[in-house]
């Protein structure tokens, strides 16, 4: 499955990428191919059109275009895309808004490796 990581922090982006690729080695997750990482909603939208990922991890607070707006755009392009919101718990209302706009799950920061793996597993499970 193709994964795109959206987060304005490069530390978080690298962490998600590392966990996703490591867990593939451990065969915990189905074949996940990281097709791109974006630091803002605008970047994510452009990258999405180009790479067409099936899974997206989405930060909420980002410059230019926030996660809620970006989620709306991506699900308009592909209603089947599975979006996992990864954000701090402080703003539940915004996270719920993102879910209303088409995201499928929520994971709060900070998260452990296992929490992310389980969330991704839950996300891809039919």
């Amino acid at each position: 499955m193709k994964l795109m990581i959206v987060d304005d922090s490069n530390i978080i982006r690298n962490r998600i990428a590392r966990i996703a690729s490591d867990s593939f080695l451990n065969q915990k997750l189905p074949n996940i191919e990281i097709v791109g990482a974006a630091a803002s909603g605008v970047e994510a939208h452009a990258l999405f059109l180009k790479t067409r990922p099936e899974i997206v991890t989405m930060d909420l607070t980002m410059p230019e275009m926030d996660g809620v707006e970006c989620t709306t755009l991506l699900t308009q392009v592909d209603p089947q895309v599975k979006i996992l919101i990864i954000s701090a718990l402080s703003d539940k209302a915004t996270a719920i808004q993102a879910l209303m706009n088409g995201a499928e799950g929520f994971l709060y920061k900070p998260f452990t490796d296992d929490e992310l793996i389980n969330a991704l597993l839950e996300l891809v499970e039919e």
């Binding site: 996992l84 718990l89 539940k92 996270a95 719920i96 808004q97 879910l99 209303m100 088409g102 995201a103 499928e104 799950g105 929520f106 994971l107 709060y108 969330a119 839950e122 996300l123 499970e125």
Partner: peptide, 19 residues
Amino acid sequence: NYISLLFGNKVKENLILSL
């Protein structure tokens, strides 16, 4: 909003518990 999310089929129940 949360309840309407749960009645929809899109979101994963276990992934929104914390919200």
